[in-house]
Design a protein around this nucleic acid. Structure first.
Lengths: 220, 220
DNA sequence: CTTGCGTCCAAAATCGATTATTTGCAAGAT
DNA sequence: ATCTTGCAAATAATCGATTTTGGACGCAAG
């Protein structure tokens, strides 16, 4: 999803493809990842493939068991709550720093990101599910924009990974929670421009809590 | 350091050794990591070696540049401040959860961890630098014990990585900051047993701030 | 003296083969 | 009938060889 590092090397491509396949559910949670099968699917040799799988293991999208191979990380309510809690923690903190440091240039990016997201929300609300992945990318870009002025690469990177883990849970929802989420995004935009961090943090916590509940009710 | 996952596979060994060599400064910040040289040093083939390096890249101890190879992640004041800020954020939050959930069993582990750390601090204060790595391991175990009851695997894992990145900066200090740090650990223990989270968080922030300042004054 | 091009070398990226481990199954014993 | 025990097939882990790439050097043209 994010931190794509769009490269042209075979290894990076495999990495990005597998990562995205996990996040968007094209590889099921808990599935066994057989090297021979993946080798064919992603067009690499085992060494290169294992490199990609190792990276994903370190990031937490895959678990590696001793001499028994790789598995897509399982999903659970417990894990969803842990991930969400972590996202709120990191994103709230980053918003605080960002709100304090952001200049007009930053405001511009936030407004632009919200506008794009808003457009997709309209289409989703109209029932056009073909833009599902684009919508989620813009959702990412909006939240990213809010914290972009935080000034900490380390924080942005941690947040990016946690965001994508949270996203995996959202992607398997069968229904659209749009109306509510859309309003929350709008309120978040207003709070950002008003530099009202307390309000923004409260909105974010509610936004994510809403996502959790929706996810628990609408996923297999 | 932590999350050793002590395995007997060649790859895991290489991973653990390289990781530890970076943290304890046996591999210099910014150093070029040539595959051939490392292959000899850690006794693996390039494929297995690259796997280990990839994992470390994902964790942030190594940076990979396009087709130009791997380098030990550079160190900077900026990075130290980002890492420290992140550590305070994660550890403060984890302490809060842990203080709320910890039972008597947990208290026992905290007391035990502090006792061991305290012993090493005495030896360090007496000038016995041979226990340097053991001392730091006990330091890790104490802080880990404080947050162990937080109930979130995700949080513990993130904290573990950040802790080790912070540790790398501490390991290149040439002098011992012990006296002060030792008192802070004692106060932290008291606050934990009294379940005084506000005090503990304040102590932790000061503890880490102290480490930063000491590091900036005593490192190359 | 600089700039551009071609060659060569060192190093990284990738591959397919080899070795080690696990697992499933079947035969024999209790 | 159930529990070992011992292959054999499947799969993971590791290796060394091959291909690709980036950078240094030298030479010639402007």
């Amino acid at each position: 999803m994010n931190d794509a590092a769009a490269s042209n090397s075979i290894g990076d491509n495999a990495f990005n493809n597998i990562r995205s396949d996990i996040i968007f559910g094209r590889l099921d949670a808990g599935a066994k990842l057989k090297l021979d099968a993946l080798k064919a699917r992603y067009g690499t040799s085992v060494s290169t493939l294992r490199e990609a799988l190792s990276r994903l293991t370190s990031e937490g999208f895959i678990v590696a068991e001793g001499q028994r191979g790789f598995f897509v990380s399982p999903m659970s309510e417990q894990d969803l709550r842990e991930i969400s809690d972590l996202r709120v923690l990191l994103e709230s903190h980053a918003m605080k720093l960002s709100f304090e440091a952001g200049d007009t240039e930053w405001e511009g990016r936030v407004v632009a990101a919200h506008h794009k997201l808003s457009r997709m929300e309209t289409r989703m609300a109209a029932g056009d599910f073909t833009v599902r992945e684009t919508w989620k990318r813009y959702d990412w870009e909006f939240h990213q924009a809010l914290i972009l002025a935080c000034g900490s690469q380390a924080l942005l990177k941690s947040h990016g990974t946690v965001f994508d883990k949270y996203l995996r849970y959202q992607m398997r929802n069968l229904t659209y929670r749009g109306e509510m989420a859309s309003q929350e995004h709008g309120a978040l935009l207003d709070a950002a421009l008003a530099r009202d961090i307390d309000k923004a943090q409260a909105l974010l916590a509610a936004h994510i809590e809403g996502g959790i509940e929706h996810s628990l009710r609408n996923a297999p």
